[in-house]
Amino acid sequence: MGSISWIGFKNVGRAECLDILGMTPAAGPADRARFSLAELPTGWTVLVSQDFAFASEKRLQRLSAGRTVVGLQASETVMCATATLFDDGRMVWRVDYDCEVGHPEIAGCPPAEYEAIFERLIAEQEASDITDSEVDIIFEAPIELALAVTGFRHDAAEFDWGQPDFHPLDAPAGPRPGGLFARLFGRKG
C-alpha cells in the first residue's frame, strides 16, 4: 500500500464536499487519481488522497468548521497511522501509532469502540507466530478505529454495505512556489 490519507465528512454530500474542498470532478480511473471521493451509505463522504500529509490536523481543523470530520493517515512503509476526529473546529480525539514508539498515543477521548479494538489487536499480536518485529499488528488500531466510526477502510475492497463508488477529482490550482518577488523576478522559492 505505501502511504495514504483520507478525510471523512459526516452527513455531508458529494456536492457540498466538492464546494468545501474547492475540487472538481476529473476524468480517468479513481484508483489512479491523486484525489477521489465517494458517498457511503453510512452517512459519511470520504475523500482519499495519495498524499500522506493531506489529512493533517491543520486541514482537519479548517474543514471541520460547522461539521464533523475524521482524518486518517497511514503508512505501511514506516508502520505509523493516525486517526483524528474534529468537530466544529476542535479536536475531539486522536489515536496515533508509530512502531518506533511501540504503543498508541491518545489525545482526547476516543469512542468506546477503541478499547475493544486495542484489546483485540494486542491479543492477535501475542497469539501470532511472529517472534521478531516483522509485523506490528497494533499499527492497525487507528485504522480500525476510523473504520468503526465511518464504516470505511481504505484497503478494503468491499464492506457489508457493498463497494464504495469513488470518483476522481482535480484539486484547485495552488499558488506558484515562492513569494511575490520570486514570481516577479523569476526566482524559485
Rank of each mutant, 00 (worst) to 15 (best):
E134W: 12
V46T: 07
V149A: 04
D19E: 08
E140Q: 14
S75H: 07
L60I: 11
G151C: 03
D96W: 02
M91K: 15
C109N: 13
G189R: 11
V78E: 14
V92P: 01
S75Q: 08
A182Q: 03
E140R: 13
H167D: 05
C99K: 08
A116V: 09
Y114Q: 07
V149S: 05
F86P: 00
V149I: 14
L18R: 05
M23G: 01
V78C: 11
F185T: 15
F181H: 04
M91I: 03
T131A: 12
P168L: 08
A112L: 12
L147Y: 15
V149Q: 00
T150F: 14
A148T: 03
R120M: 11
H103F: 05
P25I: 11
G186N: 01
S49Q: 06
C99E: 09
T68N: 02
G162I: 06
P142D: 03
I117A: 08
F54A: 08
K10W: 09
R90Q: 15
Y97G: 06
A146E: 00
G8N: 03
Q61W: 03
A15R: 14
R32P: 04
A55F: 06
P164G: 05
L72Q: 02
E144V: 03
A27H: 07
E144D: 10
P175Q: 10
P177T: 03
P142F: 02
A127I: 04
M23K: 04
R94F: 07
A171C: 15
I137K: 09
W6R: 01
A55G: 04
A148K: 06
G43K: 08
L147M: 07
F86Q: 01
F118E: 09
A182V: 04
V78I: 14
I106L: 09
C99L: 02
F181P: 01
R62G: 07
P25L: 11
E76P: 02
F181L: 04
F181S: 07
A141L: 08
P29I: 12
R153S: 14
L85K: 08
S56D: 12
V78S: 12
L21R: 10
F54C: 05
T45G: 04
V135L: 10
L85I: 11
Q61S: 14
K10I: 02
F54S: 05
R153A: 01
D132P: 03
A30W: 06
I122S: 07
A123S: 15
V46Q: 08
A83P: 03
P172N: 14
E76S: 13
E76T: 09
W44P: 00
A156C: 11
E100D: 04
E158H: 09
V46K: 03
D170E: 15
E144F: 10
A156R: 11
F181D: 06
G89M: 04
P164D: 15
A83G: 08
G186Y: 05
A107I: 10
D165N: 07
C99N: 10
E16R: 13
A141G: 09
Q125D: 13
G43N: 01
E126M: 14
M1Q: 11
A30G: 05
K188V: 06
P172H: 07
E158L: 01
A33Q: 06
N11I: 00
P172Y: 13
V101H: 10
D160K: 01
E119M: 03
T150Q: 02
D155P: 01
F139V: 06
R67K: 15
F54L: 10
D88F: 09
E100L: 09
D129E: 14
L21M: 13
G89C: 12
